[in-house]
Design a protein around this nucleic acid. Structure first.
Lengths: 147, 147
DNA sequence: CAGGATCCCATCGGATACTG
DNA sequence: CAGTATCCGATGGGATCCTG
C-alpha cells in the first residue's frame, strides 16, 4: 500500500503528536531536564520517595558517593523549587530531615517512566554502541576478513 | 490516628513503588538522563519526531541557536546510541539527512511525559522559587514590617 | 551532624577558521 | 552544505578545612 503517495514527510507509525505547538519554543522540556538532568537530583528524589531521610542517611543511601557539598546544593535546589521539604530540629547535634513535597512525589511517576524506558532499551543501545565503535575501529567497511 | 505508631517511615499516598530494587544501584535512570540531560539532545529528538531533517534544517529549527559543532556532537551521539539514523548523499554540495530510528521514536512518548509534567508544575515551581528568593532577601523570618 | 567556604580540575559548550 | 579542528571561557563537581 501507499506506493507513490505524496505525504511521505512523516513515515512515522503512531507518535504522541509530540510536544511543541510553537516552533522555536522550548516547550518546557528543558525545565524538567535542568532540574533532574544534573548528576544527583534524581537519586535524591528516588531515595526520598521511600520516606523521610536525614542528611547523612541520604548521603549514604545515594549510589556513587555524593559529596556533602553536592548533596547540600542538590537538596537546596530541590527545596527552592518546592519539590523537597526541609525540617530542622535545633538539637545538639543538629538534626535535619528531608522529605518530598506533594509535587515532589508527582515526580516519581515521571522518574519511573524514565527508568522503564532505560531498562527496556539498554540492551539495544549497548548493541548499537558496540557496532558503532567497531565500525570506527576497523578501517574497511566490508567484512574483508583481511589477510 | 497513629500516635506513636512505629511504621511512620512512609507517610506517602500512592507512589508507583518507584524504581530500584537493589539499593546502591542506579536503576538505569542515569542512563536516560546522560543521554537526554545535555543541552540539545531533546530538541533534536523533538524536531526529528516531525520527520526527516537535513543538517541545516535541524540547526535552524532548534531553539537557542545551537552551534554546528554542538549539533554535530549531539547528533553523532544519538546516532551511536541507535536513536537517530544518518543518511549521506554524496552529492555536491553534500546532503545529509537525519531521522529518528524506531527506538528514537519511542523516546517521543517519554519526552511528552516530561513536557507535560513541566508545563503542569511550572507555575507552582515559579511560585516556590519566588517565595524562597524573597525569604533569602529579607532578614527577619516574621512579617515584622520593620521600622 | 549538618553545612558553609575555598581551592582546583575536568568537562561542556560557544566562537571562529578551515576543508571536501 | 556538512562537517572537523582549535582555542577558550563558563560551569559542574570533588576534596578539604572549618564551624555551630
Amino acid at each position: 500500500m501507499s506506493v507513490g503517495h505524496t505525504a511521505v514527510t512523516t513515515p512515522v507509525p503512531d507518535e504522541p503528536v509530540i510536544v511543541c505547538e510553537t516552533p522555536q519554543d522550548e516547550c518546557g522540556v528543558r525545565d524538567v531536564l535542568d532540574r533532574l538532568g544534573d548528576k544527583w537530583s534524581v537519586y535524591v528524589v528516588v531515595e526520598l520517595a521511600s520516606g523521610i531521610r536525614r542528611f547523612k542517611e541520604l548521603q549514604r543511601a545515594i549510589p556513587g558517593n555524593i559529596s556533602q557539598r553536592m548533596l547540600t546544593l542538590t537538596v537546596r535546589r530541590l527545596e527552592r523549587d518546592g519539590l523537597v521539604a526541609r525540617t530542622v530540629y535545633p538539637t545538639i547535634p543538629p538534626q535535619v530531615e528531608y522529605e518530598l513535597t506533594e509535587m515532589g512525589h508527582s515526580l516519581t511517576h515521571l522518574v519511573k517512566t524514565l527508568a522503564d524506558w532505560s531498562i527496556a532499551h539498554r540492551p539495544a543501545i549497548a548493541a548499537s554502541r558496540a557496532a558503532w565503535d567497531a565500525a570506527a575501529t576497523e578501517p574497511t567497511t566490508e567484512p574483508a576478513t583481511a589477510p
